[in-house]
Amino acid sequence: MEYILRETDIFDPKLADKFYDLFKDDLELFEDDKYYNLTVSFHVNSNDHLTSFMKFELPPLEKKITRKNSDYEKEKKYDVLSYQLKELEDILVINDIKFHMSTIQGEELEFTDNIKIVILENEPKNNTNKNGKKKLWICRSIMPSRPYTTSLINDFYAKRMNKLYHRFFSIIKDKKIISEILEVEETQDINLLFKAFIEQYGDLWMTTEEREKELINKLKNRCLEVLQKYIDEEQKQNDDI
């Protein structure tokens, strides 16, 4: 479900009330045994309105920082976003709608005075305790600028995968052999080889320990298999001489 709150912004103290006015007619569409993700998007340009963040009145219990803090302005921004997200989460809570992920993020929305709220069904994985009972962990994230965060993640991803690529193939200089290891048509183009590596082993950059071991063992075994093939071929040629 997607809701567009018009003529408002992230600084609106009545944001949650405006959301509920749109949301209340759809309550019957949400099932008791389902879990959902909540994503709140505001226009990323709102981050430039520092005065509005500073003037935003937080309830006493939400005031976690003091002006003596050198990062006061940054932390006030996060406190405001956290508060608004919590207010919107409470609309789901009081209506018995279970969610396990919530996000508030600055986005390149079409209009600066809109708020977009998306609620999607998403069953959490491994949400049971040792006794087999369901235990819901709620994951919250705050991204003042999703484009900036995405850029950082992409940069980190590229560096991480480049490092892994060279870790495995720095000793193997022959791109023909690397092509065979990656099971692609023979090429001397490093970009095509790196792309093939990403497609097959891209999960290595951030995954579970078990999955990481699985992929590394797969790649190691493939390297050994292909290298052994070339060693055997070379040995056979030497024997024939």
Rank of each mutant, 00 (worst) to 15 (best):
Y3N: 11
I115W: 03
E180I: 09
T128F: 15
H49Q: 10
L50H: 06
L50I: 15
F111W: 04
E110D: 14
Y83I: 06
T187Y: 03
I178R: 08
H49L: 09
F23T: 10
E225V: 01
M101E: 12
K229C: 10
T208N: 03
L109D: 10
L85V: 11
N45P: 02
K163Y: 08
W205K: 07
S179F: 07
M1G: 12
D174R: 02
T207F: 03
T149L: 06
I231G: 01
Q105E: 15
M54Q: 13
E185I: 13
I198L: 06
E233A: 04
L192G: 00
L219N: 05
L182S: 05
E199Y: 07
N45G: 12
Y78N: 08
M206L: 13
T149K: 09
K213A: 12
K163A: 11
V80K: 04
I119D: 06
R167H: 12
M101D: 04
E57N: 10
F56S: 04
D48C: 02
F197C: 10
E73N: 10
K218R: 13
D203M: 04
R6A: 10
D48R: 08
T103H: 07
D90P: 00
F42Y: 14
I97Q: 03
K116D: 00
D71E: 10
Y35V: 13
A158Y: 13
S102K: 04
D12G: 12
Y201Q: 05
K176V: 11
N127T: 09
E62G: 03
S151Y: 13
L136I: 15
K98T: 01
P144T: 07
N122I: 05
Y230L: 07
F53C: 01
I178F: 06
V118G: 02
E57T: 14
F111S: 11
D240G: 03
T149P: 02
E199F: 06
E233F: 05
M143S: 12
Y36S: 02
Y35M: 07
T103S: 09
K220A: 00
L50M: 09
F194A: 01
N45W: 01
E199L: 11
L50C: 03
E2Q: 13
I172S: 06
E73F: 08
D240L: 10
S170A: 13
R160L: 04
M1C: 11
D79I: 06
E186L: 14
I117L: 07
I216E: 03
K135D: 13
R160F: 08
F197Y: 08
E110K: 11
R167Q: 08
N47V: 05
E212V: 01
G202K: 02
L193Q: 04
G132T: 14
S52G: 00
K125L: 13
Y72T: 04
A158V: 11
D33P: 02
F19C: 11
R140T: 13
D26H: 13
F168A: 01
L15N: 09
